[in-house]
Write a protein that binds this DNA or RNA. Structure first.
Length: 564
DNA sequence: AGTTTCGGCGCC
DNA sequence: AAAGGGCGCCGAAACT
């Protein structure tokens, strides 16, 4: 029995609250509470709080030490519902939703807030227009009806509530921060890059490598300027189109080795060097801002600090507090397992129903034991490989796992034809996927409005500067797998959060298929078990009855770098 | 001078 | 030999 209440913060620091009946409508009068956190704290029996925006409310509650069990984020649900209805990119604020409902002029969404280095989540989320509680509930009630009009209402409900749970997790992670040893980080930088010179120039090792590159060319060449490097190779009689690593790797020239080494270290210096440490690490914690569902596929993003791209060598600096441990858990071959679950391919389900190494099993059945080839084939099918060995391998895959390949092929066709494509739970890929949502002149870009010829060549297709129909196909092909994997991961996180409720353990990091829990040493075994249970539960909840298993590789470590 | 795009590479 | 999905971040280059 859920006890649902709705809440809207007031400008004076208080809040309006109201209980909701089983129908989602107010089951009593709206009450004004003088204190936002107190309003929640004094109602421990509430199992779900309905509010406009988790980012607006929850950091303020956490700052007062108040957690909630579940919530429903109206503006996030609005985004998901709009997408499902084919209106991706329309204003998603509660105010806009209300205006659409009443037929008035729809206000545009306020602009995004830029990242603030080293800052915690702001106390007051500037984004979004506050709405009186009664208006908010009008939107909420209509959203409940809109769920029922989707292809799979039960799945859509699961999606919106799971993403709301994800937003709770994200807010809690933002508050906790990732344990980070600045000393270790500085030691790693010193080992890799050498000492820094006064004046903020390149550290010693980079300067040496730059000299080696210049010496190899017989002239001064700055390795961080691609145009200069391409020209230098041309003078040496070597034609390169770019200075990408995969292209330079096959070039036989003494400058290549120091150049590649320079690029590797340069990257660490500029992206995760001393300046980064200064900007992002405070009091032993790296505090990125996690944003649940920040991408079209539902994967999370982080705002600032590059938290999802921490180089392997830098992970040495992620160190548990004394007496605490990091439980690092990595889902094994998540995407092919998800493909098995959504496509219901009998062969792939059988393979994914065992906890064994999935690529080895696939290769035993379709690639006479060549695991590397099997892995390439599976990833190629998911990513839409179009040439090379991948095509041959794809044919082998198709013979043995026809429904799985047909599933992604159909998604690709739908994408090419501009039809809507959805994840298992109903997150919807915009027909012209990409970054054009902010283009107000583009009225939702419905598929029927974009004839094939236009998309194919001359016309401008939102999100695809090249107007490449094939690219849309590849995007859609990947979307159904990557996005459904994100669906599952969201449920897994929500379940894990719930089982950590009564522990000191805190979720501190999440990266697509990997989660880190920071906990007292004595809780580590409990957390490891909780992760396995969360994975199983997420599999059942997301995909229904399925033989597919979702095993995790877990490691209990003091340092993130020791996990693999 | 300020803003946007590009090249490159980190992670999954 | 050539090449595919999602992101963020940085400095340089290319613009207004």
């Amino acid at each position: 029995m859920t006890d649902r209440w709705a809440l809207a913060p007031a400008e004076d620091g208080g809040a309006d609250v109201v209980p909701l009946g089983p129908d989602g409508l107010p089951a009593g009068p709206v009450r004004r509470e003088p204190d936002l956190a107190g309003a929640v704290r004094s109602r421990p029996d509430v199992t779900r709080w309905v509010w406009r925006s988790t980012a607006e409310v929850y950091p303020r509650l956490l700052a007062e030490g108040v957690r909630v069990e579940r919530c429903y984020d109206i503006e996030d649900a609005e985004t998901l519902l709009l997408g499902h209805e084919g209106h991706h990119g329309e204003p998603r604020s509660a105010a806009a939703a209300l205006a659409r409902l009443r037929g008035g002029p729809v206000p545009p969404d306020p602009p995004q807030r830029p990242a603030a280095p080293g800052a915690q989540s702001p106390l007051f989320e500037p984004q979004g227009v506050p709405l009186p509680l009664t208006d908010l509930l009008t939107v909420y009630a209509e959203q409940q009806r809109r769920h029922e009009r989707t292809a799979h209402p039960d799945r859509m409900h699961l999606l919106t509530t799971a993403e709301s749970a994800g937003m709770l997790v994200a807010a809690e992670m933002n508050r906790a921060g990732l344990p980070w040893s600045a000393d270790v980080h500085r030691r790693v930088l010193r080992e890799l890059l050498g000492e820094r010179y006064a004046g903020g120039g390149e550290p010693r090792r980079l300067a040496e490598l730059a000299d080696e590159v210049s010496a190899a060319f017989g002239r001064r060449v700055r390795p961080d300027l691609p145009a200069e490097v391409v020209k230098a190779f041309a003078r040496a009689g070597i034609k390169v189109r770019s200075t990408r690593r995969w292209e330079l790797q096959s070039v036989d020239h003494p400058a290549v080795a120091p150049l590649l080494e320079y690029k590797k270290l340069y990257r660490i210096w500029v992206a995760h060097g001393w300046a980064w440490l200064q900007d992002w690490v405070r009091e032993g914690r790296f505090r990125p801002e996690f944003l649940a569902g920040g991408t079209v596929t539902g994967r999370w993003v982080t705002n600032g600090g590059g938290a999802l791209q921490i180089p392997k060598v830098i992970r040495r600096a992620v160190v548990a507090d004394p007496g605490w441990r990091l439980v690092v858990a990595d889902a094994d071959q998540m995407e092919p397992r998800v493909l098995a679950a959504v496509s219901r391919d009998p062969g792939l389900m059988e393979v994914a129903g065992r906890p064994d190494d999935l690529y080895q099993s696939v290769s035993d059945r379709a690639f006479s034991g060549d695991r590397a080839q099997a892995k390439l084939a599976v990833l190629g099918a998911v990513y839409g490989q179009t040439s090379g060995d991948g095509l041959k391998n794809l044919a082998a895959l198709r013979r043995r796992f026809p429904r799985a390949v047909a599933y992604v092929d159909e998604a690709a066709r739908a994408g090419e034809e501009g039809r809507l494509v959805r994840t298992w739970l109903g997150r919807t890929c915009p027909p012209a996927a990409g970054s054009a949502e902010d283009d107000a002149t583009q009225e939702a870009g419905l598929p029927q409005d974009e004839p094939e010829e236009r998309a194919a060549g001359q016309g401008w297709v939102p999100g695809y500067a090249s107007g490449d129909v094939r690219a849309r196909g590849r995007f859609a092909r990947n979307f159904v797998v990557q996005g459904s994997a994100a669906d599952w991961a969201l449920l897994m996180l929500a379940a894990l959060r719930r089982s950590c409720r009564d522990l000191a353990a805190e979720l501190v990091f999440f990266q697509h298929d990997e989660v880190i829990v920071h906990c007292p040493e004595e809780e580590a075994d409990t957390v490891v078990a909780a992760i396995r249970e969360a994975a199983d539960l997420a599999g059942r909840l997301t995909f229904g009855p399925t033989p597919v298993r979702f095993p995790f590789t877990t490691a209990v470590v003091e340092c993130y770098a020791d996990a693999k």
